[in-house]
Design a protein around this nucleic acid. Sequence first.
DNA 1: TATTGTTATACTCTATAACTATA
DNA 2: TATAGTTATAGAGTATAACAATA
Lengths: 164, 164
Amino acid sequence: MAENDSERDTPTGGRPADRPDLAALLVPLCRALVDAERPVLDAHGVTMWGYGVLLRLGETPFRSQAALAEAIRADKTRIIPVLDDLEARGLIDRRPDPDDRRVRLLSLTPEGRRLRDAVQADIRRGEEELLARLPAADRQGFVRALLALHALPAIPPHRPAADA
Amino acid sequence: MAENDSERDTPTGGRPADRPDLAALLVPLCRALVDAERPVLDAHGVTMWGYGVLLRLGETPFRSQAALAEAIRADKTRIIPVLDDLEARGLIDRRPDPDDRRVRLLSLTPEGRRLRDAVQADIRRGEEELLARLPAADRQGFVRALLALHALPAIPPHRPAADA
DNA sequence: TATTGTTATACTCTATAACTATA
DNA sequence: TATAGTTATAGAGTATAACAATA
């Protein structure tokens, strides 16, 4: 098996590691990136969740907190303090729907939009500096691959071999 | 504004998002990947940290738990229960250094190596299936970019613009 | 006194369950 | 009764601080 040279030894065999596992590459990178962006978020007085809310509401208003929470993959209880803060600072509009006063209509205020833009500009700048360290060809493939993976509906669970 | 069509508005300007932030692409991907790999780890009875220890000790033995912890970016107190478990199952060797009985010499046993290989084979298979969904060109760039970023000593903190 | 490993404690984040208000 | 939102509680995961053994 595995005589094909261009493909090296297939990982299916499982022995030698031509490279670290994907997760071993991705997870530390994620942690490092989040850490690197924290100073920016702090400087603007928003948490990661708060920024996520601003981003999402900037795309489209939402008709309920639960729907917003699901959209950003957060627990509905988790974003409540976040919304409280953003609302108190006039960054989002949040009011009961007249048609059904149980649900809250959520949207971005002009100030919210301004803050989102300011934060995003800083973050983009930092990210571009990071990407600039990559060869142009790899950079394109990297971003395109991330977009493609992002577009996937889900990543199916890996299944252990039968002889586990 | 934004009359340029091919490049849209540049992120430096900070207004409209030609693509999601890097972190917004990476973080959900990381979470999804870790979730996808959990069944494999469960099937083999190891945690993510346990697998990380097996991987690292497979590369080279360690002369102290603290050094191992730092190498896998874990807190030294965090891996103690992990090492307890791996040792009890005969997957690692862990004994006081005769020269300095404070430190523990850590290495992989043959069984540990076998388990590591089995787990890694499953994980690699799953990861290859995922990568197979990408265009070949992007896949190469993706992996190469990850390796390059992995090789960086650190990611410098992003800095907010002066007018924050 | 300094260092390794360990244990005990506290803290953060997150999810679960109970409550309210509307319908 | 069912649902959106909220609050209170509990759980997991992690880090900090105190401790024991060895140097």
